[in-house]
Simulated assay, not measured.
Amino acid sequence: MKRVTTQAATQATKWLYGLPLLLTSPLLFADAATGEGSSINLRRGATDISGQVYDLHMLMFFICIAIAVAVFGVMFASMYLHRKSRGAKPAHFHENVKVEIAWTVVPFIILILMAIPAAKTLIAMEDTSEPDLTVVVTGSQWKWHYRYMDRDVEFYSLMATQREQIENKFEKGANYLLEVDRPLVIPTGQKVRFLITSDDVIHSWWVPDFAVKKDANPGFINESWAKVNEPGIYRGQCAELCGKDHGFMPVVVIAKEPAEFDAWMNEQEEAARQAKEEEQRLLSMNMSMDELMDEGKRVYNATCAACHMPNGEGLPGVFPALKGSEMVLEDQTAHIDIVLNGKTGTAMQAFGKMLSLKDIAAVVTYERNAWGNNTGDMVQAKDVNAVVNGN
Rank of each mutant, 00 (worst) to 15 (best):
Q7N: 08
L16A: 12
G18F: 11
F29V: 09
A32L: 10
T34Q: 04
E36W: 06
S39N: 11
I40L: 07
L42D: 09
D55W: 12
M60I: 14
I63L: 15
F76A: 14
S78H: 14
H82N: 08
R83E: 15
A91Y: 04
F93M: 00
W103E: 02
P107T: 09
F108D: 00
M114R: 05
A115Q: 03
A115M: 04
V137P: 00
Y146W: 04
R163Q: 08
E167W: 14
E167N: 15
K169P: 00
F170I: 14
K172P: 00
Y176F: 14
P183G: 03
V212M: 13
K213E: 15
I221Q: 04
S224Y: 01
A226Q: 04
K227A: 07
G232R: 15
C238K: 06
A239G: 03
L241V: 15
L241Y: 14
C242E: 01
P250D: 06
V251A: 12
V251H: 14
A255S: 10
D262P: 14
E270H: 13
Q274M: 03
N286W: 08
M289D: 12
D290W: 07
Y300H: 05
G314P: 13
Q332H: 10
V339N: 01
G342A: 02
K343E: 11
A347I: 06
S356V: 08
E367A: 12
W371C: 05
N374C: 03
G376T: 11
G376F: 11
V388M: 06
